[in-house]
Amino acid sequence: MKTYKDLPADGGSNIVGQVTEQVNRLQRRLASVNHTVAIMSGKGGVGKSSVTANLASALRLRGQSVGVVDADINGPSIAKMMGVRGEQIDYGIDGVKPAISPLGVKVMSMDLFLKDDETPVLWESQTQRDAFTWRGTMEMSALREFLSDTEWGTLDYLLIDLPPGADRLPNLVDLLPNLGGALVVTIPSGVSQLVVKKSLTMAKKLLNAPVIGVVENMAAYVCADCGKTENLFPSGHTEEMARQFDVSLLGQIPFDPRISIAADEGIAFVDQYRDTPAGQTFFGITDEIRMFFK
């Protein structure tokens, strides 16, 4: 009896060929993107999306052409932070036109496809029972379409805002074997770093992915009146973690309530408050990223 390997094809469906074509389509699309950067942490609530939105705007303000993909399919927040929520998107010549932020950053997010504020991401299915068997694949297919079917044009940087979870980077690397680099966001707490270390291990040791460096968010509180800096968490752990994994600490962003307010209003904090300690830190990280790719 012939075995699997003896049979030349799968009977005419050519599933492998179809998947290969999806990969090729993605590569063709991203051929005009100079640098793809994954923003990740592994831990939720550390401000990844806020960091992504502000770095994208800071890069734009440095004269770079920038796109952002919101890879958090189930909890998209980038569209709101970038001020493009509710923007109508339509077909272009060879794909879907992205939403454009007031500063000119191109954005693609599941948020743009959802019916209203209350609507979660649900996929058409005969039953939602046992959806765990296929939902992850559906989400990766959606991300693949965001990357490959958006008219990014020529970009200097495409930032990919990953959802929490140490498994997210390997999934992305499956899609983008030539990922330019990963930027890891943490906060100074030991709990955050316990999780973030797993992501760093995954990135550096298992995937051998290029890690641009670590960003410490909510590093300290700067008093708006007297300018005095107070730590919000015990300090020093992020530097230690960066040393342990032999990665650069790109910057320590102080907590500033205006970052959150700007995100809610869809305006770029780094544009409105560029001379604040937090604003300056964002620009400093931006410069570190650009140095990494030089």
Binding site: Q88, Y91, L112, L114, W123, A142, F146
Partner: peptide, 21 residues
């Protein structure tokens, strides 16, 4: 473009991607 998302997302924004590709 976005065939899978448009085809299988349960509750879609009716204003986006309404025209034919």
């Amino acid at each position: 473009p976005m065939q899978m998302v448009r085809s299988f997302l349960s509750e879609k924004n009716p204003d986006n991607l309404t025209s034919e590709a």
